[in-house]
Design a protein around this nucleic acid. Sequence first.
DNA 1: CGCATCATTGAACAAAATCAAGCGAGGTGG
DNA 2: CCACCTCGCTTGATTTTGTTCAATGATGCG
Lengths: 246, 246
Amino acid sequence: MSEPHDRLLRKLESIASLTSVERDAISELPFRNRSFPPRSAIRSEGERPPECCLVLDGLTCAYNVLPDGSRQITSFFVPGDLPDLQSLHLHKLDHSFGTISQSRLAFVSHEALLALSLEHPGVAMVLWRESLVTGCLHRQWVTNLGRRIAYARIAHLLCELYVRMRVVGLATEEAFRLDATQAEVGDATGLSPVHVNRVLQELRSDGLIVSQGRSVHVPDWGRLRDAAQFDPTYLHLTAEASALIH
Amino acid sequence: MSEPHDRLLRKLESIASLTSVERDAISELPFRNRSFPPRSAIRSEGERPPECCLVLDGLTCAYNVLPDGSRQITSFFVPGDLPDLQSLHLHKLDHSFGTISQSRLAFVSHEALLALSLEHPGVAMVLWRESLVTGCLHRQWVTNLGRRIAYARIAHLLCELYVRMRVVGLATEEAFRLDATQAEVGDATGLSPVHVNRVLQELRSDGLIVSQGRSVHVPDWGRLRDAAQFDPTYLHLTAEASALIH
DNA sequence: CGCATCATTGAACAAAATCAAGCGAGGTGG
DNA sequence: CCACCTCGCTTGATTTTGTTCAATGATGCG
């Protein structure tokens, strides 16, 4: 089985179970792989893409650009995520998305996905479910931006990325790789780059994180989680995935 | 046809078209209506509700409560909205929701909705689409909270509510009813009640809104929209609905 | 080596929170 | 009928949080 199918099946089976007929149908999806350099645009607001994509590798994000040029990142996507499942039903994109680090994505036409969904309602339900989980992430981000001070807000983002990467095997029990620059963390948390820098220093001096280049070590998950008021319920992980993060 | 079916059909047909078979099937859904007083809880975080609901009347909202007791409202729901469609697939609620004003809701069991979705994939797609639109609202809220100062942020919320109410016939070309208190507007925009008060005064003195009791007049939609940097694309309205707001 | 990008620092400033009080309309009970 | 109470709105003073501006390091890469 090819890489995109494997990634997608593992992703979908992490949120619901599939019949073997459904699995086979998914395995027939015609993916085309493409690579993107760091900081490159994949889709821009206003486009009407004819296909959806699946992240195979790298960190990507969705964002809005405001009239004054400032940017708000509204989500990050890790391997296994389907960043623009939305475009399957809402044709005109109301946001942009692009890469943070060098990434590889696999594209499937809307046509193929719609045919699959109509023929296998179970698959449609899993995809629907996947987009609902994305909605939960957004709601948490709203809460994070609206009601947490910078310190907890950044800690919360780190917790989310750590757990999401851990679940797909991209983080160890102790550390994960954060390819975003401090400015990008600011774009995601609604803070200025300068302030992100200062808060990260505070997190480091409090021993909640230890950074070495792009990798973030988490010496005491319990303390980081508490500082962030992080409750992973909203990620709607399976029992096995939850077990990974104690 | 009874009120809930009428509301639901109008809502769904405002975002996609239905066949007459699908319409008939929807008309068979067994709704139960219930009324709720203002400021009452409908569902609380952690519950596993056995049914979904449809707003018939009143203003309701979804929110998270943080450990320190502060609250973040993550969405408002107006008549025609399906506040917890999510629970159909994500059983454990990761947020609470309740009423702002006196409200009437219609409940349908998950069982009935799932059966309908499986038998009529077209209906499932429309419901899926509806939850995607909700996701778009959340993304805009993230952007609003992260990157707009209080003045534009509150203006943006007012624009969103105005347009959403206008589309379902609950606002005139000039005014809409805002049942939320200033503290509730603060919970939605991530601001303190005191600051909301001051910003509303500023919006009034700039002539962007004129309040009379709970009703908000919009003397110059163009100016309010510009102040809010409001672009209704994210609401994914039909052409007819868009026409209502020039 | 020189350039670009990212991280860091300090100082001044702005935005919004907090604290504390007063106001005003609507509802309630004596 | 009126005192009184509550809730929501308003105001002022003060403090906190985070931004902006401007510059300086650090690192990596062609």
